[in-house]
Nucleic acid binder design. Sequence first.
RNA 1: ACAU
DNA 2: GGATGT
Length: 235
Amino acid sequence: MSKKNKYYVVWEGRQKGIFDTWSAAEAQVKGYAGAKYMAFESLEAARAAFAGNPHEHIGRKPKADSRPGAADAATPKADSRLGAAGAATPRADSPRRILSNSPIWDSYSVDAACSGNPGVLEYRCVHTRSREIVFARGPYDAGTNNVGEFLALVEILALCVKKHDPRPIYTDSKIALAWLRDKKANPKNPERLNPLLLERLARAEAWLASHSYPNQVLKWDTEAWGENPADYGRK
RNA sequence: ACAU
DNA sequence: GGATGT
Ligand SMILES: [Mg+2]
Ligand SMILES: [Mg+2]
């Protein structure tokens, strides 16, 4: 009997994704409190599940296959603390993660670094895949991390508009994303900021108020992907 | 809590 | 350990 290969969705674990062997999946969830994972009979089902909410699958009855005589149950599993009892499905090929969320490599990434916060600020933009530096600013006295993250974001947006470059832009800063959404920076102590930076914030806000842009601005998933390519590597 |  | 922010 050819044991059908299963597909293991890991929503919550060391590495998230879809794995095609239990051993690969187990490595992500064994001893990992709060792990959420489940086996599926088809890659299609696994893809759909991974894209969705674990709660809609874990502990629910497996979806019946429409075709008669097709494979039946998926095996629901939840919570590694109960002790994973997954039976192995050995394969000839090597265990691998066959699907995971991954960055759009043809994109830009921005980051800021502050020596002290507030402190001496630098920020820059690179191409995500090549790490080629698009621009680098600073050092500036009396800056903050968030000011740098935001200025970098708006500068690459303006450059993209000028160049008609619609590629996505990554930032790891929730704050910069919020300020961008609001088209408004919100430094808590503007009076302590370098006046040059204050002026740049004003210009950035003015630019946002008067322009639109085609680029998606996306959150860099540092936990999954490691440090953003624009990172300064000083932490 | 989350992200820097 | 400290700070910037939602
Ligand atoms: Mg950053
Ligand atoms: Mg960084």
